[in-house]
């Protein structure tokens, strides 16, 4: 049990997918203008990443490795990810039309979110067990959601701040992202011994 807890903390905070591994920066910048859509995007991505990691493990161990097809890894993983995203899009459109409107183009773009494919490839390369893979994917996705929420909250306050004209809009958001990244580097000093 402690292993899984440590894995969760490690993936969500210490090796945060956005701020430490620099994956998935497109939605990080694109959908972080308000808290509601950031939370929706985070949850949708969490669902996709967890499912994609699990599916990738099954593909790798039941199809690619036994039949010596490891060179088809990226192709098959992208196929599964695209199908999962399509499924999530249908579910969101049916169950939460407002969220569907708010996420707009970024919802189908989860397919090309490099965090999803990156995590699926990482878990396979690390040769983790199935449960470890799921926890790793879920933890990373939680980290993604957490960072999206923090960044959206900060940007909401930043919108009210008096920023010099040359820095207003995207530039100050990039500075904010780098400061947040620096802060997350501090988690590397966590020690549980």
């Amino acid at each position: 049990m402690t292993t899984y807890l440590l894995l969760l903390i490690s993936t969500a905070l210490v090796n945060n997918v956005v701020l430490v591994k620099f994956l998935g920066l497109c939605p990080f910048m694109g959908v972080s203008k308000n808290m509601d859509s950031a939370l929706g995007m985070g949850l949708a991505t969490t669902f996709v990443i967890t499912l994609a990691c699990g599916a990738s493990w099954m593909l790798e161990h039941w199809l690619l490795e036994p039949f010596d097809l490891v060179y088809l890894r990226i192709l098959t993983f992208i196929l599964v990810i695209a199908a999962t995203v399509q499924f999530v899009e249908m579910v969101v459109k049916k169950s939460a039309p407002a969220l569907y409107q708010a996420l707009g183009i970024y919802l189908p773009l989860i397919t090309t979110n490099c965090a999803v494919l990156g995590l699926a490839l990482l878990t396979v390369q690390e040769k983790m067990s199935f449960i470890d893979t799921l926890v790793y994917g879920f933890g990373s996705a939680l980290g993604f959601t957490l960072v999206m929420l923090m960044f959206a909250g900060l940007r909401e306050r930043l919108a009210l701040a008096n920023v010099p004209a040359a820095f207003s809009g995207a530039p100050v958001s990039f500075i904010l992202a780098s400061l947040l990244s620096l802060a997350f580097m501090g988690f590397a000093g966590l020690n549980f011994q």
Binding site: L63, F67, L69, L79, A83, F87, V91
Partner: peptide, 24 residues
């Protein structure tokens, strides 16, 4: 086997999405 497995995977996912599209 590569062609067969990808074809099978693709058709399975397509079938699943088709059913989901009807359901949702």
């Amino acid at each position: 086997i590569a062609i067969l497995s990808l074809t099978l995977l693709g058709s399975l996912l397509g079938l699943g999405l088709g059913v989901a599209a009807k359901k949702f």
